[in-house]
């Protein structure tokens, strides 16, 4: 069975590496982007099954990327992985259409669970 594909969007190389290490045995990481601008063109090129998305990034931040992505791809599956876990920010991201919000620092299991939940039938 084909592995579901993921795109990792985070400006910190160390976090992209960590997320890749967590996801890769179970998912196929098809790309990494370090800002929202780069991410949008990479999304179009890779068409991943889901995205992990940081919020605080240079050029185009995660919330703006999320709005732009869902405008053109309303079914896109996005898990926010961010240190900015303020109540209003979490509420905004989930209201816009993010499927889950993982606050940094995180346990690897929390990320795996969030990703698996996107594709569970229950």
């Amino acid at each position: 069975m084909r592995l579901k594909t993921a795109l990792i969007i985070d400006d910190a190389a160390v976090m992209r590496m960590r997320l890749r290490d967590i996801l890769e045995p179970h998912f196929d990481v098809v790309g990494e982007a370090e800002d929202g601008e780069q991410a949008l063109s990479l999304y179009e090129a890779c068409r991943p099954d889901f995205v992990t998305l940081d919020i605080t990034m240079p050029k185009v931040d995660g919330i703006t990327f999320l709005q732009n992505l869902l405008k053109s791809h309303p079914d896109a599956k996005v898990i926010i992985v961010s240190a900015v876990g303020q109540k209003q920010t979490v509420f905004k991201a989930l209201t816009l259409g993010a499927r889950d919000f993982v606050v940094k620092p995180f346990d690897p299991e929390r990320v795996k669970t969030a990703a698996n939940r996107l594709f569970s039938k229950a």
């Binding site: 910190a12 160390v14 605080t56 961010s82 240190a83 940094k104």
Partner: peptide, 10 residues
Amino acid sequence: SEIANMITGK
């Protein structure tokens, strides 16, 4: 920088 980001975010 990620440590600083996480501390400030928290």
